[in-house]
């Protein structure tokens, strides 16, 4: 047990948590923005995948990491807009359309990589480079914290700034107020003169962009290549974090961080004498239990309110 504690308290482990949590944080906040805008973005997975693939391919061919990252984010954003258009213009079910977009991303990225590079696995043959790391001056001299923070990728920094940004956007800006109003009740929002559709399109574009940033981190953060289906279900876990976090920015932040910590822990414990597959089920089992508890609490509270009203 003490060896587990040693692992958990080491600064290397904390640094790993920040790294592993980065895509979850970004994608989950993206999912949150869409959810609060009233359109469930189950296509987070596909948007991440498309961004990861586009980023690596464009960076590889143009020899510009920045251009690659920007194109990746743009593609994910366009997928967000496409989801909004399917929902708002063609009356599609957001969940089903999201499944379709995930399928499209999975097929199109694999087809593109195979067609361009004649490789089934990924873009390892292409030198696409990584995004720079950020080290604040003087931070390395701080004990523990210095080791944890220094040398983190710039997207990790962005991921941790994204939570206060989304919170500020939601609760301190006119756009955020409109977004929440539209998500709550689009007709009521429209009746007081909010351009409901425009707000929803903007929300889904932002959602896609955040998922895109998460995807770009996967293929251009620590590794410099895209692997087929490299998101490996992270988009769905992020979606779970959205609901687990109670649809609030800081709640989602904590839930996503929790998933990151659990995954980093599973990797660390894999070195001990425990089957890694079983260790890696822990975060999902915890989520399932938390989901049930959360729903149970909400239901009890709801029943209490009804009882109070009937008195």
């Amino acid at each position: 047990m003490s060896s587990v504690l040693d692992v958990v308290l080491s600064s290397a482990f904390l640094a790993a948590v920040l790294r592993v949590a980065t895509p979850y944080l970004l994608a989950a906040l993206g999912g949150l923005v869409a959810e609060r805008a009233g359109i469930s973005n189950i296509a987070l997975e596909g948007q991440m995948l498309a961004a990861a693939c586009t980023g690596a391919l464009v960076a590889g061919y143009s020899h510009s990491v920045a251009l690659g990252a920007l194109s990746g984010i743009t593609v994910a954003m366009l997928l967000g807009l496409l989801l909004a258009a399917l929902r708002l213009e063609l009356g599609a079910d957001a969940i089903i359309a999201g499944i379709g977009l995930n399928l499209l991303a999975s097929g199109a990225t694999a087809y593109a990589v195979y067609t361009l590079l004649d490789d089934k696995g990924g873009t390892t043959g292409l030198r696409s480079g990584t995004l720079p790391t950020v080290t604040l001056p003087g931070i390395e001299s701080i004990p523990v914290l210095g080791d944890v923070l220094s040398g983190q990728n710039m997207i990790t920094w962005l991921a941790f700034l994204a939570a206060p940004f989304v919170a500020w956007l939601f609760f301190r800006t006119r756009f955020g107020f409109h977004l929440r109003a539209v998500g709550e009740m689009p007709d009521a929002a429209a009746s007081v003169g909010i351009a409901a559709r425009r707000v929803q399109y903007a929300g889904l574009a932002l959602s896609g962009a955040l998922a895109g940033l998460a995807g770009v981190f996967l293929s251009m953060g620590y590794v410099s290549f895209f692997v087929r289906d490299m998101t490996a279900g992270r988009g769905f876990i992020a979606l779970a974090a959205v609901f687990l976090g109670g649809l609030r920015p800081w709640g989602v932040f904590l839930a996503a961080l929790g998933f990151g910590a659990a995954e980093a822990l599973a990797v660390q414990l894999g070195t001990l004498d425990v089957p890694p597959q079983l260790v890696s089920t822990i975060p999902y089992a915890m989520t399932l239990v938390a989901l049930a508890l959360y729903a149970w609490r909400r239901k009890r509270r709801g029943a209490g309110e009804v009882a109070a009203v009937s008195l």
Partner: peptide, 24 residues
């Protein structure tokens, strides 16, 4: 031609099917 094109075709089918407004 990679077999992945089939996945793309399938995805387009899903997206078209879910566009409820068209048949209605």
């Amino acid at each position: 031609v990679g077999t992945e094109i089939v996945v793309v075709i399938q995805a387009v089918i899903v997206l078209l099917v879910t566009a409820q407004a068209l048949p209605d």
